[in-house]
Amino acid sequence: MTPTWYDLLDVDPHASEAEIREAWRAAIAELDPGDRRFRTFNQAAEVLLDPARRAAYDAELTAQQPEEEAPDEPTPVTATAAPRRRVVPTWVLLGLGLLTAALVVGAALLARQPSDDAVADAARAAQAAAERAVPPVLSYDAADLEGSRSSAAAYLTATYQKERDQLFEEVIDENAPNTGTTLTTSVVDSSIVRAGDDDRVQVFLFVDQAATNKEQAEPRVTRTWVTMTMERVDDEWLVAAMRVV
Rank of each mutant, 00 (worst) to 15 (best):
A107Y: 09
D173L: 10
R200S: 07
A120M: 10
F168E: 02
L96C: 15
D189R: 08
V47C: 11
L156V: 05
R37N: 15
E19Y: 01
T90F: 10
A70R: 12
Y140F: 15
G34S: 12
E236L: 11
P51T: 09
D197V: 09
E17M: 09
P219M: 07
D58P: 02
A118C: 02
L238R: 09
V245W: 11
V134K: 00
H14K: 12
A45H: 02
G196A: 13
T227K: 12
G97H: 07
V244R: 15
A101E: 05
R149F: 01
S190M: 07
A152K: 02
A120E: 14
R223F: 00
A18Y: 08
V201W: 00
W237R: 01
P74G: 03
L99T: 13
A176E: 04
L48M: 06
A176V: 07
D199Q: 13
D72Q: 14
P76W: 05
G196E: 14
A56H: 07
N178W: 10
V201N: 01
R85V: 15
K162D: 08
M1K: 14
D208P: 05
A52E: 13
T222L: 09
L103Y: 08
L156I: 07
Q216K: 14
L138A: 05
T222K: 10
S191W: 01
V87F: 07
R21N: 13
A143L: 09
N178V: 13
L96V: 14
L49E: 00
N213H: 09
T157G: 07
V201T: 06
G97W: 07
S148P: 03
Q113R: 15
V104P: 04
R112A: 06
Q161G: 10
V207G: 01
P89F: 01
R194S: 14
A125H: 07
T80V: 12
R25G: 00
D10M: 08
A101G: 11
M230G: 06
A56M: 08
Q113H: 15
E236I: 13
S148V: 07
A107T: 12
R132K: 15
Y160Q: 12
Q64M: 12
S139D: 08
V221N: 00
Q202M: 09
W225T: 15
L167R: 13
L138M: 09
D197G: 15
A27R: 09
L138Y: 08
T157Q: 03
E231P: 05
T4E: 00
Q127G: 11
D165F: 02
T227A: 09
I28M: 05
T227E: 12
R37G: 06
D199T: 14
F206V: 12
A52P: 00
E169A: 15
L110H: 13
R54H: 06
A29H: 14
A241C: 02
G180V: 08
V92D: 01
D165A: 11
A108E: 08
L96I: 13
V245P: 09
G95K: 01
V137T: 11
F41W: 11
E22I: 06
L61G: 06
A15G: 05
V87G: 05
P177Y: 04
E68Y: 07
Y140E: 06
S191Q: 13
V188C: 04
E69Y: 04
H14T: 13
D72Y: 09
E131M: 11
E73Q: 10
T229F: 01
H14W: 10
G147C: 02
A176Q: 05
A63R: 11
